[in-house]
Design a protein around this nucleic acid. Structure first.
Length: 581
RNA sequence: GCCCCGUUAGCUCAGUCGGAUAGAGCGCUGGAUUCCUAAUCCAGAGGCCAUAGGUUCAAAUCCUGUACGGGGCACCA
């Protein structure tokens, strides 16, 4: 309908003003939906925009357009109002077309044609040194819903988890595992302060003992002595313990590292799966350091590339990238004085590969604390002739948990964090997903645990699901399946509430498109709440199982449309629509 | 110091490409159930859209300054 009016407007403008200097093709003809019924269903501001270039009174232009516009049974009336708006009034038949469309397309209503574009979304990517906690949950929920939205909007989507399985933290993890393991044989051995303190590592150590008995336990006096050192809370001390364990275990150290890594990845994968999140790629950071037949690893390759372009220099034994030449605050280290690569070096290689894998869009979902990191990554892309604009970064703000109105305190350091698993157990997976999404991503989120468990309309998810259950109940009681709803007379749907519901249903495809385009899944939550609210209001004002079978059929057909859109929207959020509650 | 994000009803927050009289929920006040799920609905009160300028026919929305709040600025990951 919008397209029809637009093309009519273009034709009229060509007739009226085609000979002036106007470039009609370049005009954006906006049609907006009106909030106020007095102004009709759709409005165009075209006359206001043309007033200046045509040097004419906007109302005069609007009236000429109005006079040329031919009304029909779909567009019943046109009015010029206010400073020069052109208002269009649609017939009830036009409003109800959406119901036939939903009935025909079913779960495909809202799905766009394929855009023939590939998108890579990278998200969660938490360090594989412990289970996911509630801070990761928001990114996980966001990423998976954005993925679903993009698929709905016609993109081919790959979802990737970047596994930071390389470097110092992995060695600390391996050392922590060995200490936990050794404790199973010798209780006097203490855990180091900067090690991974969480209980999950004790379970992994027990598993290690189960599988390999005391194979890795030898009484290393030097390590025990070292652990008695006064200064525990110190990075240098931590490293010296790691080195001691590493040199004592020799090759077994690598085995322990992989053992811990695999066990933790298992935990993470299971948590994500239960949370309704499924990545189809798991990209290992350490694979970037594998030496293949060309005898140079991906990271060195990326560094060499930068070097050959003249953007790398050496200072104080370290290798620096001239990111400041591309808008970064200062230059960044790629390889440290001690010969170790920085995390940034991996990221240069990783992002270069992402580009080279041939995606049209590359989306990173990062915690908002990483925003300062963006300029250097984009600088590396720009320096190697890759379009930095292609990399879209969405920042996710932290979430606070509220219990009884008070913030729940957490500390990652001591291991006193609430895991995603605990959150799912407490409020259900679906509530957790909904509440994570129900807020603009770049804003702080106060996650109210009590509200998420509440079973009343205060809880927006409950409110939406209840709307669906109510519709199911009515359809069931009415024996809707024995009626020929497709043939219902939809012109009977002419009350204010019925028109508004149909208009809202009609907005759904555009909403999906917009939410996908701007990476704003929260819009879907708000939409579903609105639609549910309209339904509940309608439900209370009208009866559906009534004597007048024709009216009954048309109303039930409307309810079926609402039901379908609720199902479609909830399914994008990864949430079920229960038939009974 | 520099860089992000924010400031909209008492509270928590939406607000599309700049459009006509600014939206929801909670809370508050008052109502609705012999009837399809009251797990719901209806009505009312409640606003200087932080602030000062600018652009525009038109600004909560775009631009600049200021104030206040949150976050970030490693040879960490």
């Amino acid at each position: 309908m919008i397209e029809k009016i637009q093309s009519n407007l273009v034709r009229i403008l060509e007739d009226l003003y085609g000979d002036s200097h106007l470039n009609i093709d370049e005009l954006k003809i906006n049609l907006q939906e009106n909030n106020d019924k007095k102004h009709g269903d759709l409005a165009s501001n075209i006359a206001l925009i043309l007033a200046k270039p045509l040097k004419k009174n906007p109302q005069e232009i609007a009236n000429s357009i109005k006079d040329s516009f031919i009304t029909d049974e779909e567009i019943t009336k046109i009015e010029v109002a206010g400073p020069g708006f052109i208002n269009f009034f649609l017939s009830t038949k036009t409003h109800s077309e959406v119901l036939n469309e939903i009935s025909a397309k079913k779960e495909l209503f809202g799905k766009s044609e394929t855009k023939n574009q590939n998108v890579l979304i990278e998200y969660v990517s938490s360090n594989p040194t412990g289970p996911l906690h509630v801070g990761h949950g928001r990114g996980a929920a966001f990423g998976s819903v954005l993925g679903a939205l993009l698929k709905e909007a016609g993109f081919k989507v790959d979802e990737e988890y970047y596994v930071n399985d390389f470097g110092r933290q992995m060695n600390i993890l391996a050392a922590s595992l060995w200490l936990r393991y050794a404790q199973l044989f010798n209780e006097s051995i203490t855990m180091i302060e900067n090690g991974y303190q969480g209980e999950y590592l004790i379970s992994i150590a027990e598993k290690l003992k189960e599988d390999h008995s005391d194979k890795f336990y030898r009484n290393y006096d030097s390590i025990v002595e070292l652990l008695k050192t006064e200064i525990q809370d110190d990075e240098i001390f931590t490293d010296s313990v790691v080195v001691a364990i590493q040199s004592a275990l020799e090759n077994d150290f690598n085995f322990l590292r992989d053992f811990a890594l695999q066990a933790i990845l298992e935990l993470i994968k299971r948590d994500l799966l239960d949370f309704g999140v499924e990545h189809n790629f798991w990209f290992s950071e350490s694979s970037l350091y594998d030496i293949k037949e060309n005898k140079i690893n991906q990271v060195d390759l990326a560094i060499e590339d930068l070097k050959s372009r003249g953007f790398v220099y050496e200072k104080e034994n370290a290798l620096w990238f001239k990111s400041s030449e591309f808008g970064d605050d200062k230059d960044r280290v790629l390889k440290r004085g001690n010969g170790e690569y920085t995390y940034f070096a991996s990221d240069v290689a990783y992002h270069s590969k992402k580009y080279d894998r041939g995606y049209d869009r590359v989306i990173n979902i990062w915690g908002s604390d990483h925003h300062g990191y963006t300029p250097r990554v984009q600088a590396a892309m720009e320096a190697t002739n890759r379009d930095p604009e292609k990399l879209e970064i969405v920042y996710i703000q932290f979430a606070n948990l509220l219990r009884a109105g008070k913030k729940v305190t957490m500390s990652t350091r001591s291991g006193e964090f609430i895991t995603l698993r605990e959150l799912m157990d407490e409020v259900t997976t679906e509530a957790a997903r909904f509440f994570y999404i129900n807020r603009k991503a770049d804003q702080h989120l106060d996650f109210d645990l009590d509200l998420a468990k509440d079973q009343s309309k205060d809880n927006p998810l409950y409110y939406i699901q209840y709307a669906h259950a109510r519709i199911c109940s009515v359809l069931k009681k009415s024996n809707a399946q024995i009626m020929d709803l497709e043939r219902a007379d939809l012109t009977l749907l002419d009350t204010e509430k019925e028109i508004e519901i149909q208009k809202t249903l009609n907005q759904y495809p555009a909403l999906i498109e917009r939410a996908a385009k701007s990476s704003e899944p929260h819009l879907l939550c708000y939409y579903l709440k609105d639609l549910s609210g309209l339904f509940h209001s309608y439900y209370n004002s009208e009866k559906f199982i009534i004597e007048d079978k024709k009216l009954m059929a048309s109303r039930l057909f409307l309810l079926k449309g609402v039901k379908q859109v609720l199902v479609n929207g909830l399914s994008i959020l990864g949430i079920k629509a229960p038939e009974e509650m």
